[in-house]
Simulated assay, not measured.
Amino acid sequence: MAYWLLKSEPEVYSILDLKREGKAIWDGVRNYQARNYLMRMQLGDLCFFYHSGANPPGIAGLCQVVATHIPDPTQFDPTSPYFDPKATREKPRWYTVEVAFLEAWPLIPLAELRACFPPDHPLVKKGNRLSVMPVPPEVAEKLIARKGCR
């Protein structure tokens, strides 16, 4: 099993939205490195749901990958801000996963996560935060066991 961090602004889509819906496609990712991470995800992988743009930002819960290698439907929708005119149904350019809600947590703020993640991890390096990132297993296990880094 691998561990991932999925970022979303809570006013756009929050852990509570995922809880209400039960599961959702993680659509709209338009960064090639983040897309490649989505394509590496496997069934059962765990994902930390990160609220970016929050005050403070941080991990707000846990979800699990329940479907993989899904062509992102927003790339085909001309009314979507994520429309890609170069993508076709025969040759999609963007793939995603479906995740299912597991738990909402009291927010683990970025300030605390800095003590938990290696200093070179993209989450704690300003300017390097992708919407999808791998999480080292030793960090993930610490977060799951204690729901924090204290």
Rank of each mutant, 00 (worst) to 15 (best):
A34D: 07
F83W: 12
V12D: 14
W4K: 04
P118L: 00
A34E: 07
P85N: 10
P119S: 06
T68W: 07
P10C: 04
A100V: 09
R146G: 08
D17W: 06
C47W: 03
L130D: 03
E112P: 01
Y37F: 15
Y13K: 04
A2H: 13
T88Q: 08
A24T: 15
A104G: 12
G61E: 06
L18Y: 10
L18H: 12
F101E: 01
A87H: 08
L107P: 02
D17C: 10
S80R: 09
D84C: 10
P81L: 07
I15W: 01
P118R: 01
F76W: 13
A24Q: 13
F48A: 05
I70M: 07
R40E: 15
R114Y: 02
H121K: 02
G22M: 10
A100N: 09
L6M: 14
F49P: 01
V97K: 04
H51V: 09
G28P: 14
V139G: 01
R35K: 14
Q64I: 11
W4S: 02
A111N: 12
I25D: 07
A104S: 13
E21S: 13
Y95W: 15
F117M: 06
P134V: 03
M41V: 03
E98I: 04
E21G: 10
Q33R: 15
V132P: 00
V12P: 04
Q33M: 13
Y50M: 07
T88S: 13
Q42K: 15
R93G: 14
L18N: 12
E9F: 02
K23Y: 11
G44H: 09
I25W: 04
L62W: 00
L113Y: 04
Y3H: 14
V97Y: 08
F49H: 05
A145H: 06
W4L: 05
Y3M: 11
E21K: 14
V65F: 05
C116I: 04
L107H: 07
V12E: 15
A115R: 12
V12R: 14
A54C: 06
F48W: 10
L107W: 08
K126S: 00
A2T: 10
L102T: 09
V29N: 00
L102G: 01
S52F: 06
A2N: 15
R40L: 14
L123A: 01
C149Q: 06
A54F: 04
C63V: 03
R114K: 15
N36G: 08
K86F: 14
L102V: 15
S8M: 06
I144Q: 09
K23N: 14
E103R: 09
P122L: 00
P10A: 03
R114F: 01
R40W: 12
I15C: 03
G53Y: 01
K91W: 09
N128Q: 07
H69I: 05
P106R: 15
I108D: 07
I144E: 09
L113K: 04
L38G: 02
